[in-house]
């Protein structure tokens, strides 16, 4: 079905719905279906030029354009934040070309396009998470030949992935890979979870929402259907661990979320804040306060009350 978005000035049609033409969306949906059918397998697709440079989420935008409908509500995050350049411009792009509702609230969104983070709030079955992926091939670090990496996937030759982890331990004493941490999907394919911090890897496992990955430059799509087993690779004597922080969020006091370090001045003062802006804002609305919040810090008793 052809759907067009009217030009508000004179009522003529400006764009096809969600920018891409219907044939292109159909091609991407076919790739998506295949990706969902084979969790973790990289499906090639005929990636289009998008009106933004490679590295800015062209893969994610094409996937979103292929799955979005007029009744969807879109949320876009970049490093967890809704208000960074990349997130704002992609949100505006779909607001203009698909005239869909947009939101910054995780719970209200039906489609969430993300670069780097998975929202802290647990996602539901009626939500879709779309990742922007720069390098889809987890084996690329040690094997530059595409023909060879494809063969390694086909034959499940994944020893090389552990060579990378071995190097980490040998050099740093622990697995120092903190983002794009390789995972084994459904006991079959090793997958690069895109440059999400490894803090988010456990959330991918058994997630209720559908997870779609789009790499624009490399022209690959892969997917995790809901409730797929996702296991982070590790050694028996060096098990997988996520990052931890000694500090709490300076604004909302959260200790369970992924924290960004913010340098405050040249005197070495710094603070930590939640990278997920929506999560932080929601907690602040609910009365949680961190030590650097501009409001008066709450007394201990109030804090305990707020935590309830």
């Amino acid at each position: 079905m052809e759907q067009t978005v009217k030009n508000p000035a004179d009522g003529t049609s400006a764009y096809n719905f969600a920018y891409l033409d219907e044939q292109t969306k159909r091609m991407i949906r076919r790739a998506l279906l295949k990706a969902v059918a084979i969790p973790g397998y990289q499906v090639p697709f005929a990636g289009r030029e998008m009106p933004m440079p490679y590295g800015w989420g062209t893969g994610g935008v094409q996937v979103t354009a292929a799955v979005i409908g007029p009744n969807d509500t879109l949320k876009v995050i970049d490093q967890g934040a809704d208000d960074t350049t990349n997130a704002v411009s992609i949100r505006q792009f779909f607001a203009k070309t698909a005239q869909v509702a947009t939101t910054e609230k995780t719970a209200e969104a039906s489609i969430i396009q993300t670069r780097h983070r998975i929202p802290e709030k647990e996602l539901r079955e009626d939500q879709v998470l779309v990742y922007q992926v720069p390098i889809p091939e987890p084996l690329r670090f040690l094997e530059p030949r595409e023909t060879e990496t494809r063969k390694m996937h086909a034959l499940e030759e994944y020893g090389l992935m552990h060579v990378k982890l071995y190097e980490d331990i040998a050099r740093h004493g622990h697995i120092a890979t903190t983002y794009a941490y390789p995972v084994m999907v459904d006991d079959r394919y090793v997958m690069d979870p895109s440059p999400t911090p490894k803090f988010d890897n456990p959330k991918m496992n058994d997630m209720a929402a559908l997870q779609l990955f789009g790499a624009g430059r490399e022209k690959r799509i892969y997917a995790l259907p809901p409730y797929t087993k996702v296991k982070s690779l590790d050694f028996d004597d060096h098990p997988f661990e996520v990052q931890t922080w000694e500090d709490e969020c300076g604004m909302c006091g959260a200790r369970d979320s992924y924290l960004d370090e913010v340098i405050l001045d040249d005197q070495g003062n710094r603070m930590f804040v939640c990278s997920d802006t929506d999560y932080c804002a929601e907690r602040q609305e609910a009365g949680h306060r961190g030590p650097q919040h501009h409001d008066q810090p709450l007394s201990n008793s109030k804090r305990e009350k707020a935590a309830e």
């Binding site: 020893g159 090389l160 071995y166 050694f235």
Partner: peptide, 21 residues
């Protein structure tokens, strides 16, 4: 581009050895 130890260990890891020590 990987250490001598990783070079030797690669074949072991390729056949499923998962104990770093």
């Amino acid at each position: 581009n990987v250490s001598a130890g990783a070079n030797i260990g690669e074949r072991m890891m390729a056949i499923g050895d998962r104990h770093y020590g």
